[in-house]
Design a protein around this nucleic acid. Sequence first.
DNA 1: AGCGTATATACACTTCAAGTAATATGTTTC
DNA 2: GAAACATATTACTTGAAGTGTATATACGCT
Lengths: 106, 106
Amino acid sequence: MDVFEAIAEPSRRELLDLLSERERPAGELVAHLHKLTQPAVSRHLRILREVGLVEVRPDGQRRIYALRADRLIEIENWISRYRRYWPRHLDALESHLAHNQKEPTE
Amino acid sequence: MDVFEAIAEPSRRELLDLLSERERPAGELVAHLHKLTQPAVSRHLRILREVGLVEVRPDGQRRIYALRADRLIEIENWISRYRRYWPRHLDALESHLAHNQKEPTE
DNA sequence: AGCGTATATACACTTCAAGTAATATGTTTC
DNA sequence: GAAACATATTACTTGAAGTGTATATACGCT
Protein backbone atom coordinates (compact mmCIF):
# COMPACT_ATOMS: atom_id res chain seq x y z
CA MET A 1 0.00 0.00 0.00
CA ASP A 2 1.31 3.44 -0.85
CA VAL A 3 0.75 6.88 0.65
CA PHE A 4 -2.19 7.72 -1.61
CA GLU A 5 -3.93 4.46 -0.75
CA ALA A 6 -3.20 5.00 2.92
CA ILE A 7 -5.00 8.33 3.05
CA ALA A 8 -7.88 7.17 0.86
CA GLU A 9 -9.48 5.63 3.93
CA PRO A 10 -11.17 8.30 6.06
CA SER A 11 -10.31 6.59 9.33
CA ARG A 12 -6.63 6.81 8.62
CA ARG A 13 -6.91 10.49 7.73
CA GLU A 14 -8.64 11.02 11.03
CA LEU A 15 -5.80 9.24 12.82
CA LEU A 16 -3.27 11.41 11.07
CA ASP A 17 -5.23 14.53 11.98
CA LEU A 18 -5.32 13.50 15.63
CA LEU A 19 -1.59 12.87 15.64
CA SER A 20 -0.88 16.16 13.91
CA GLU A 21 -2.02 17.79 17.16
CA ARG A 22 0.26 15.76 19.38
CA GLU A 23 1.56 12.26 19.89
CA ARG A 24 -0.94 9.99 21.61
CA PRO A 25 -1.20 6.51 23.04
CA ALA A 26 -3.10 3.91 21.01
CA GLY A 27 -5.95 3.80 23.48
CA GLU A 28 -6.62 7.51 23.10
CA LEU A 29 -6.85 7.07 19.34
CA VAL A 30 -9.27 4.19 19.81
CA ALA A 31 -11.39 6.39 22.04
CA HIS A 32 -11.61 9.07 19.34
CA LEU A 33 -12.54 6.70 16.53
CA HIS A 34 -15.63 5.39 18.23
CA LYS A 35 -17.09 4.15 14.96
CA LEU A 36 -14.40 1.43 14.92
CA THR A 37 -13.40 -1.35 17.31
CA GLN A 38 -10.01 -1.42 18.97
CA PRO A 39 -8.64 -4.10 16.61
CA ALA A 40 -9.77 -2.08 13.60
CA VAL A 41 -7.93 0.99 14.80
CA SER A 42 -4.89 -1.13 15.56
CA ARG A 43 -4.87 -2.40 12.03
CA HIS A 44 -5.09 1.10 10.57
CA LEU A 45 -2.22 2.19 12.78
CA ARG A 46 -0.21 -0.72 11.51
CA ILE A 47 -0.85 0.29 7.92
CA LEU A 48 0.16 3.86 8.66
CA ARG A 49 3.32 2.63 10.31
CA GLU A 50 4.18 0.32 7.43
CA VAL A 51 3.68 3.12 4.94
CA GLY A 52 5.86 5.35 7.10
CA LEU A 53 3.31 7.94 8.13
CA VAL A 54 3.49 7.25 11.85
CA GLU A 55 6.02 5.93 14.27
CA VAL A 56 5.51 4.23 17.61
CA ARG A 57 7.47 3.78 20.77
CA PRO A 58 6.63 1.68 23.81
CA ASP A 59 5.82 3.40 27.10
CA GLY A 60 5.19 0.68 29.65
CA GLN A 61 2.08 -1.14 28.55
CA ARG A 62 1.17 1.64 26.21
CA ARG A 63 2.27 2.38 22.69
CA ILE A 64 2.78 6.02 21.89
CA TYR A 65 2.08 6.97 18.30
CA ALA A 66 3.48 10.04 16.59
CA LEU A 67 3.02 11.54 13.19
CA ARG A 68 5.78 11.21 10.65
CA ALA A 69 4.78 13.56 7.90
CA ASP A 70 7.74 13.15 5.58
CA ARG A 71 6.06 10.94 3.04
CA LEU A 72 3.00 13.14 2.87
CA ILE A 73 5.23 15.27 0.72
CA GLU A 74 4.36 12.81 -2.02
CA ILE A 75 0.79 14.04 -1.84
CA GLU A 76 1.98 17.65 -1.74
CA ASN A 77 4.19 16.86 -4.70
CA TRP A 78 1.32 15.64 -6.77
CA ILE A 79 -1.36 18.11 -5.77
CA SER A 80 0.95 21.10 -6.21
CA ARG A 81 0.82 20.77 -9.97
CA TYR A 82 -2.90 21.37 -9.86
CA ARG A 83 -2.69 24.57 -7.89
CA ARG A 84 -2.64 26.60 -11.05
CA TYR A 85 -6.22 25.58 -11.69
CA TRP A 86 -7.55 27.43 -8.71
CA PRO A 87 -5.65 30.67 -8.41
CA ARG A 88 -8.87 32.51 -7.67
CA HIS A 89 -10.15 29.79 -5.36
CA LEU A 90 -8.24 30.81 -2.30
CA ASP A 91 -11.17 32.90 -1.18
CA ALA A 92 -13.43 30.07 -2.13
CA LEU A 93 -11.19 27.76 -0.16
CA GLU A 94 -11.63 29.81 2.94
CA SER A 95 -15.37 29.90 2.41
CA HIS A 96 -15.27 26.15 1.86
CA LEU A 97 -13.40 25.63 5.11
CA ALA A 98 -15.84 27.77 7.02
CA HIS A 99 -18.76 25.93 5.48
CA ASN A 100 -17.35 22.53 6.42
CA GLN A 101 -16.77 23.58 9.96
CA LYS A 102 -20.37 24.65 10.32
CA GLU A 103 -21.93 21.54 8.83
CA PRO A 104 -22.99 18.92 11.34
CA THR A 105 -21.13 15.63 11.05
CA GLU A 106 -23.39 12.62 10.66
CA MET B 1 -16.15 6.82 -4.13
CA ASP B 2 -14.69 10.11 -3.05
CA VAL B 3 -11.83 12.26 -4.30
CA PHE B 4 -9.24 10.61 -2.06
CA GLU B 5 -10.26 7.15 -3.21
CA ALA B 6 -10.29 8.31 -6.80
CA ILE B 7 -6.67 9.39 -6.76
CA ALA B 8 -5.51 6.41 -4.73
CA GLU B 9 -5.36 4.39 -7.92
CA PRO B 10 -2.20 5.26 -9.90
CA SER B 11 -3.89 4.89 -13.29
CA ARG B 12 -6.37 7.58 -12.44
CA ARG B 13 -3.63 9.94 -11.28
CA GLU B 14 -1.91 9.33 -14.56
CA LEU B 15 -5.10 10.18 -16.42
CA LEU B 16 -5.43 13.40 -14.46
CA ASP B 17 -1.83 14.27 -15.16
CA LEU B 18 -2.35 13.76 -18.88
CA LEU B 19 -5.44 15.91 -18.85
CA SER B 20 -3.71 18.63 -16.87
CA GLU B 21 -1.63 19.22 -19.98
CA ARG B 22 -4.59 19.52 -22.31
CA GLU B 23 -7.96 17.98 -23.04
CA ARG B 24 -7.70 14.75 -25.00
CA PRO B 25 -9.90 12.17 -26.68
CA ALA B 26 -10.43 8.86 -24.89
CA GLY B 27 -8.41 6.97 -27.45
CA GLU B 28 -5.34 9.09 -26.81
CA LEU B 29 -5.60 8.36 -23.12
CA VAL B 30 -5.90 4.65 -23.85
CA ALA B 31 -2.75 4.89 -25.96
CA HIS B 32 -0.84 6.42 -23.05
CA LEU B 33 -1.94 3.90 -20.47
CA HIS B 34 -0.58 0.90 -22.29
CA LYS B 35 -0.60 -1.22 -19.17
CA LEU B 36 -4.41 -1.28 -19.28
CA THR B 37 -6.95 -2.37 -21.89
CA GLN B 38 -9.32 0.10 -23.48
CA PRO B 39 -12.30 -0.96 -21.30
CA ALA B 40 -10.21 -0.61 -18.16
CA VAL B 41 -9.28 2.97 -19.06
CA SER B 42 -12.90 3.67 -19.91
CA ARG B 43 -13.98 2.53 -16.45
CA HIS B 44 -11.41 4.73 -14.76
CA LEU B 45 -12.60 7.68 -16.82
CA ARG B 46 -16.11 6.94 -15.74
CA ILE B 47 -15.08 6.93 -12.09
CA LEU B 48 -13.26 10.23 -12.54
CA ARG B 49 -16.33 11.70 -14.19
CA GLU B 50 -18.64 10.47 -11.46
CA VAL B 51 -16.43 11.94 -8.78
CA GLY B 52 -16.33 15.21 -10.72
CA LEU B 53 -12.65 15.33 -11.60
CA VAL B 54 -13.14 15.23 -15.37
CA GLU B 55 -15.79 16.22 -17.83
CA VAL B 56 -16.50 14.89 -21.29
CA ARG B 57 -18.08 16.14 -24.44
CA PRO B 58 -18.85 14.27 -27.64
CA ASP B 59 -16.96 15.15 -30.81
CA GLY B 60 -18.32 12.91 -33.54
CA GLN B 61 -17.43 9.38 -32.58
CA ARG B 62 -14.89 10.58 -30.12
CA ARG B 63 -15.28 11.62 -26.55
CA ILE B 64 -13.12 14.55 -25.51
CA TYR B 65 -12.10 14.47 -21.86
CA ALA B 66 -11.01 17.52 -19.89
CA LEU B 67 -9.76 18.03 -16.39
CA ARG B 68 -12.03 19.56 -13.82
CA ALA B 69 -9.78 20.33 -10.93
CA ASP B 70 -12.25 21.97 -8.55
CA ARG B 71 -12.69 19.03 -6.22
CA LEU B 72 -8.98 18.42 -5.97
CA ILE B 73 -9.15 21.35 -3.59
CA GLU B 74 -10.34 18.79 -1.05
CA ILE B 75 -6.91 17.19 -1.26
CA GLU B 76 -5.24 20.60 -1.05
CA ASN B 77 -7.48 21.36 1.90
CA TRP B 78 -6.34 18.35 3.80
CA ILE B 79 -2.66 18.29 2.90
CA SER B 80 -2.23 21.98 3.65
CA ARG B 81 -2.48 21.37 7.37
CA TYR B 82 0.61 19.20 7.16
CA ARG B 83 2.76 21.77 5.46
CA ARG B 84 4.06 23.02 8.76
CA TYR B 85 5.86 19.72 9.22
CA TRP B 86 8.19 20.33 6.37
CA PRO B 87 9.14 23.98 6.38
CA ARG B 88 12.73 23.05 5.67
CA HIS B 89 11.81 20.43 3.12
CA LEU B 90 11.31 22.76 0.23
CA ASP B 91 14.87 22.19 -0.84
CA ALA B 92 14.41 18.52 -0.21
CA LEU B 93 11.23 18.69 -2.24
CA GLU B 94 13.07 20.09 -5.19
CA SER B 95 15.74 17.45 -4.87
CA HIS B 96 13.01 14.88 -4.61
CA LEU B 97 11.38 16.14 -7.78
CA ALA B 98 14.64 16.08 -9.65
CA HIS B 99 15.34 12.57 -8.44
CA ASN B 100 11.94 11.31 -9.55
CA GLN B 101 12.34 12.82 -12.96
CA LYS B 102 15.64 11.07 -13.45
CA GLU B 103 14.45 7.63 -12.36
CA PRO B 104 13.43 5.37 -15.21
CA THR B 105 9.75 4.46 -15.28
CA GLU B 106 9.11 0.75 -15.32
C1' DA C 1 -27.73 -0.66 -44.96
C1' DG C 2 -23.29 -2.30 -44.07
C1' DC C 3 -18.91 -1.70 -42.35
C1' DG C 4 -15.30 0.46 -39.69
C1' DT C 5 -14.05 3.13 -35.79
C1' DA C 6 -14.45 4.86 -31.12
C1' DT C 7 -15.69 3.95 -26.74
C1' DA C 8 -19.01 2.48 -23.11
C1' DT C 9 -20.96 -1.44 -20.57
C1' DA C 10 -21.73 -6.36 -19.07
C1' DC C 11 -19.84 -10.42 -17.34
C1' DA C 12 -16.79 -13.30 -14.90
C1' DC C 13 -13.20 -13.55 -12.03
C1' DT C 14 -9.46 -12.42 -8.66
C1' DT C 15 -7.58 -9.94 -5.05
C1' DC C 16 -7.60 -7.73 -1.02
C1' DA C 17 -9.42 -4.16 2.13
C1' DA C 18 -12.41 -3.45 5.99
C1' DG C 19 -15.08 -4.99 9.61
C1' DT C 20 -15.72 -7.95 14.07
C1' DA C 21 -14.91 -11.48 17.75
C1' DA C 22 -11.65 -14.04 19.80
C1' DT C 23 -7.27 -14.52 21.28
C1' DA C 24 -2.32 -13.67 22.04
C1' DT C 25 1.40 -10.99 23.96
C1' DG C 26 3.83 -7.77 26.86
C1' DT C 27 3.78 -4.71 30.90
C1' DT C 28 2.24 -3.25 35.39
C1' DT C 29 0.22 -3.91 39.78
C1' DC C 30 -0.74 -6.40 43.80
C1' DG D 1 2.62 -15.70 40.14
C1' DA D 2 -2.07 -14.08 39.18
C1' DA D 3 -4.87 -10.56 37.61
C1' DA D 4 -5.57 -6.41 35.23
C1' DC D 5 -4.47 -3.52 31.57
C1' DA D 6 -3.03 -2.13 26.90
C1' DT D 7 -2.82 -3.31 22.48
C1' DA D 8 -1.36 -6.36 18.57
C1' DT D 9 -2.61 -10.36 15.80
C1' DT D 10 -5.48 -14.15 14.01
C1' DA D 11 -9.43 -16.08 11.87
C1' DC D 12 -13.24 -15.26 9.49
C1' DT D 13 -16.91 -12.84 6.70
C1' DT D 14 -18.32 -9.47 3.58
C1' DG D 15 -17.98 -6.55 -0.03
C1' DA D 16 -15.40 -3.32 -2.81
C1' DA D 17 -12.20 -2.60 -6.38
C1' DG D 18 -9.41 -4.03 -9.94
C1' DT D 19 -8.66 -6.69 -14.36
C1' DG D 20 -9.48 -8.81 -19.23
C1' DT D 21 -12.76 -10.46 -22.50
C1' DA D 22 -16.90 -10.05 -24.87
C1' DT D 23 -20.26 -7.29 -26.44
C1' DA D 24 -23.21 -3.18 -27.00
C1' DT D 25 -23.86 1.43 -28.63
C1' DA D 26 -23.01 5.71 -31.22
C1' DC D 27 -21.00 8.01 -35.03
C1' DG D 28 -18.75 8.49 -39.70
C1' DC D 29 -18.17 6.94 -44.27
C1' DT D 30 -19.45 4.67 -48.50
